[in-house]
Design a binder for these strands. Structure first.
Lengths: 231, 231
DNA sequence: GCGATCGTTCGGTGCCGGCCGAACGATCGC
DNA sequence: GCGATCGTTCGGCCGGCACCGAACGATCGC
């Protein structure tokens, strides 16, 4: 009814630890089944059903029914961006992983991961920095693509950012990285770039999570196109 | 403890209508006393005390005690930005104001208002559009200040954006306007510009809210510096 | 000093909502 | 078809928390 109650209703969707865990899991950009999310969050399937209903009703998630499965995913980049913005506000965690498994998993996440549909972690930041150093991105007054950057994207991705694009998702956007505390490249261009990294086999997912690994051909590509050497 | 519980705890701060109303009121960028906020939200002073404690504890608000008064305000631009981002996600309201008072008040807000520390509403968007049309801002690939824009700021504000600045607040930033559904100029430059508008008497506040009115000298200034005519 | 005002603490009340288990329809694989 | 799996609905339990009023300390104006 009032703006305040609207804001409260939106915030209430994320104000429960179970729902928050579900949304954060969905930040990998993929569609999960209800049962997977229930197991991930550690609640009974009946409880998960209620939560997912609320999240879909609140337009944070969209669902796609397929046979006896109910797949659910984030409603779009703007939701992912909102979750990332909120996460970035949280004080940097003292990083005390329990054991070896947790330690290697968190190290892998710091090295490289996806942030919904673009690259993040040290890999994402390194790519962004190299693009800035080469004059492809301009971070001096905001976060913008230069003309040279447009040409570079056309060259590397075979995609011309100048061609008319649907929706009003920004072409580029600085997305605050919660491990590096610096910006990496988001927006439509970031998504296209990430798509190419996967399509060309430059990165592969590690297991089933958000962590990614740079392949040897990816290392070569970074050297060729950006002149940087990683790891 | 876990990222999910952190996110839930942050969201829970805004998940209550009373706290949401308090935060939205504080979006005017000024400091309010506890009692003012209690009256605004329609709760007893004792209730307001508890809410303000939670908001300060959660670092969304900062307090400054002065005599027997306790002034409270938003913890910074990043909090304001977060609130604006959340508000922008809320579906556009059918705008059915109750009576004449409400109608004129909401019309005034649409015409021009402050968005924490910069200009918003039709006024804010018009200034942003004019700056873009004159090549001072570049919105083609992101949201960035051009070299000509830097010179213009130095000329109009007497403030050189190239000089080293403290903190890591972005120089310019596109802030989604919740009445116009388009971007207006935020960030440090937006704040400086707004400061100049007030300092030169180009705009004045209407009553005690966020609404602002363009003065005759402000109209002249817009014509001189940006070549636009409003209202 | 004294009354008025601001903010706080404390006890008590009531409700919202998260959780589970059990039972049930829908779909899949064989 | 038949059992197994996925998701849902329903009832019931329980804890958290938003709210108020009353009483109290602190500060201001006179």
């Amino acid at each position: 009814m009032t703006p305040a109650s609207d804001l409260a209703a939106l915030a209430a969707l994320l104000a429960d630890e179970t729902r928050a865990a579900m949304c954060l899991a969905l930040l990998d950009g993929r569609a999960w089944t209800a049962r997977e999310l229930a197991a991930h969050a550690g609640v009974a399937p009946s409880t998960a059903t209620a939560h997912l209903h609320r999240l879909v009703e609140g337009r944070l998630l969209v669902e796609r029914r397929q046979g006896r499965h109910r797949y659910v995913q984030l409603a779009g980049p703007s939701v992912a961006q909102l979750l990332e913005d909120l996460s970035a506000r949280i004080e940097p965690r003292p990083t005390t992983p329990r054991g070896l498994r947790a330690a290697t998993a968190s190290a892998a996440l710091s090295r490289g991961r996806t942030c919904y549909d673009h690259l993040a972690g040290r890999l994402g930041v390194a790519v962004t920095d190299a693009m800035t150093a080469r004059g492809l991105l301009d971070q001096s007054g905001g976060f913008a693509l230069t003309p040279a950057g447009g040409a570079w994207l056309t060259d590397v991705l075979g995609w011309d950012p100048a061609e008319p694009r649907p929706g009003h998702r920004p072409l580029v956007r600085g997305c605050l990285d919660w491990t590096e505390r610096r910006h990496h490249l988001g927006g439509l261009a970031g998504a296209k770039l990430c798509e190419t990294f996967f399509g060309n086999g430059w990165v592969t997912r590690i297991g089933s999570g958000r962590a990614v690994r740079l392949t040897p051909s990816g290392r070569a590509a970074l050297r060729n196109h950006l002149g940087i050497t990683l790891d």
